[in-house]
Computed example of a mutant assay.
Amino acid sequence: MAEPYLLAEGMTGGYGAADILHGCTLKVEKGQIAVIVGPNGAGKSTAMKAVFGMLKLRGGHVRLGGRDITRLSPQERVAQGMAFVPQTHNVFPSMSVEENLEMGAFLRQDDFRPTIEQVYDLFPVLRDKRNQPAGELSGGQRQQVAVGRALMTQPQLLMLDEPTAGVSPIVMDELFDRIIEVARTGISILMVEQNARQALEIADIGYVLVQGANRYTDTGAALLADPEVRRTFLGG
């Protein structure tokens, strides 16, 4: 069997002496949406940081497109096709929307104007606000800028940490619709999400983490249908 596009296997590590991740494994195929859910303190964001190289692993490895990238820096991983959108501080507030998007193309040597147009097609409100400082936008619009800037790197794997945190249910649904559109272009999505039920509805595969280890792994639909998962992690 072919190896999945992202294979983060047996990840163990943490901050200082204490391990937060205990043999955590995440896999994402090309064009899949993979969602990490679980209680607060389960290690969800830590797992994302480990995949992106912001956390040094004491055990396990990370492979992308068949290549071992465990020892690469985050910047080197971006060059290999990863993009990471953190939950907070993910835009340059004093820069315009368009300047934020241009910052996303800092590694590129080619003409990135067509990619900016693709971002504007995906998020039409950003075209209207292209000259406005990102700091003046609503929370949902800032998230669109952050995702758009990540897409400017032309990633093969887009990682999103709590993309719908603090936005209204309507904006959340819209963001999830755009995430589905991105995945349909063949980009793999790995995201951590507090709105577990809604995220699992769009997930091809879901990972329930508890105390830094895999508790349940299945399709989004199967996890939603699992009475134990529903009772313990989805509020009944």
Rank of each mutant, 00 (worst) to 15 (best):
R149S: 10
I116R: 10
G140Q: 07
A183L: 11
P93V: 04
A105Y: 11
G166I: 01
R142T: 01
Y120A: 11
G166F: 06
N100G: 13
F92H: 03
D173R: 15
E117D: 14
L175V: 07
P93Q: 03
V91C: 08
D161C: 07
V167Q: 02
G140V: 02
A146S: 10
Q156D: 12
I179Y: 01
P114E: 11
G139E: 12
E117P: 12
S96Y: 08
Q132F: 01
E99S: 08
L160Y: 00
A105Q: 11
L158A: 03
D121Y: 00
G135V: 07
L151C: 10
T153G: 13
Q118D: 13
L157Y: 06
E102V: 12
V147K: 02
L160K: 02
Q118C: 07
V145F: 09
L126T: 12
D111G: 13
V167H: 06
E136F: 10
E136G: 00
F112V: 15
N131Q: 13
E136C: 00
S138T: 12
G140N: 06
E117Y: 05
R108C: 07
E102A: 15
G139P: 08
N90R: 10
L157R: 00
F92C: 09
R127G: 13
I170K: 15
P163R: 01
M159K: 00
T153F: 00
S94Q: 14
I180S: 09
D177L: 06
D161L: 04
N131P: 00
I170E: 14
L122Q: 11
G139V: 07
Q144C: 14
Q109D: 13
G104L: 07
M172I: 12
P155M: 01
V125P: 02
D110I: 03
D173E: 14
Q109C: 04
R130C: 07
P124G: 04
S94E: 14
L101S: 11
Q109S: 15
R149Q: 13
P163N: 06
I170H: 09
M95Y: 10
E98L: 14
Q156S: 13
V147H: 04
I180R: 15
E181W: 00
D177V: 01
T164D: 03
A150S: 10
I180F: 02
P163Y: 01
Y120S: 12
G104E: 03
S94F: 08
L122S: 06
E99F: 05
P133M: 03
M95V: 03
R178Q: 15
P169D: 05
E162Q: 05
G139Q: 08
Q141A: 10
A183Q: 05
L158P: 00
L137E: 02
R130E: 10
L175P: 09
M95R: 06
K129P: 02
I180C: 13
V97C: 12
D177R: 14
V97Q: 04
S168W: 03
F92Q: 05
D121K: 11
E98H: 09
